[in-house]
């Protein structure tokens, strides 16, 4: 069987008095979307930041196998390598696009940033790549030179995706990418992620409190509560036949069918 690109083992992190993450383990495979669901404060975002190397875990491993087959324990590799991976083979989409975009730099510049950081030295090619990705996330070509501060929330979310995807990452970490957006805009973004995953073999960890989004996008799911993974498995199986008391509560509290 295919090898996972990410193997997470026994992650734990205390933040102050709170055990934000405890003994979480999972694998992520190429072209797979793994949803992490739970209510606010359940440790979803902490888990994502631990996996992305933005927080140092108290214990546990995050073993990433890079494009050349080398294995890196994300929390323990040098900062320079971690940053390089995070702007080339990995990507992080922030819940608030203002955290992931330069609001006064043109949309094209935002998309080009990772390419320029990777050593691209042709203006024409940087701009072309930016235009291509703008189109790919269905933003109007005429907005290429406009800064994101002039964009709507949904457009910012898509621009942030484009920025992360421009280097053709192998995995992206999505922190509530559709939070605060209209349902129709959400659908567009989720559909975009799904298509890119299928097309490029992109793997993703999707942190969301939206069970519908998790069902539409992910093949597998982890349910978090109080920093622990209380249940995990096939997304449809966990949502249709939840076994943990908390998951049953979570699923039954959703209006209508999730």
């Amino acid at each position: 069987m295919e090898q996972p690109i990410l193997r997470v083992r026994g992650l734990a992190k205390r933040l102050g008095d709170v055990q934000a993450c405890l003994d979480v383990s999972f694998d992520l495979y190429p072209a797979e979307i793994l949803a992490v669901v739970g209510e606010s404060g359940s440790g979803k975002t902490t888990l994502l930041k631990l996996v992305a190397g933005m927080l140092a875990p108290d214990s546990g491993e995050v073993l990433y196998t890079d494009a050349e087959g080398r294995v890196h324990d994300i929390p323990r590799i040098p900062e320079s390598l971690r940053r390089r991976l995070l702007r080339t083979e990995l990507g992080f989409v922030w819940q608030d696009p203002a955290d992931g975009l330069r609001m006064k730099i043109s949309a094209g510049g935002n998309i080009a940033e990772r390419l320029l950081a990777g050593g691209l030295r042709s203006f024409a090619r940087a701009r072309q790549a930016a235009a291509d990705w703008l189109a790919r996330v269905e933003l109007p070509a005429g907005r290429l030179d406009a800064p994101p501060e002039e964009y709507s929330g949904g457009m910012r979310a898509r621009l942030q995706l484009a920025k992360n995807l421009a280097t053709r990452p192998r995995a992206v970490f999505l922190d509530e990418p559709t939070a605060g957006l209209d349902v129709s805009v959400q659908a567009r973004i989720l559909d975009l992620v799904r298509g890119l995953s299928a097309e490029f073999g992109l793997a993703a960890i999707l942190v969301t409190h939206d069970l519908m989004a998790a069902r539409l996008l992910s093949q597998r799911i982890i349910v978090m509560k109080d920093g622990r993974a209380v249940e995990s498995g096939l997304t449809d199986q966990v949502l249709d036949d939840p076994s943990a008391p908390y998951t049953q509560l979570l699923v039954s509290s959703v209006l209508g069918e999730a």
Binding site: S106, G108, E113, R114, L116, A117, G118, D145
Partner: peptide, 22 residues
Amino acid sequence: RALHALGEYGLVHLKLYEDIVR
């Protein structure tokens, strides 16, 4: 400071990119 320490200077080119765009 981190960018200097790591020799990551994509941002300089980003500034030049913005200049050319504008």
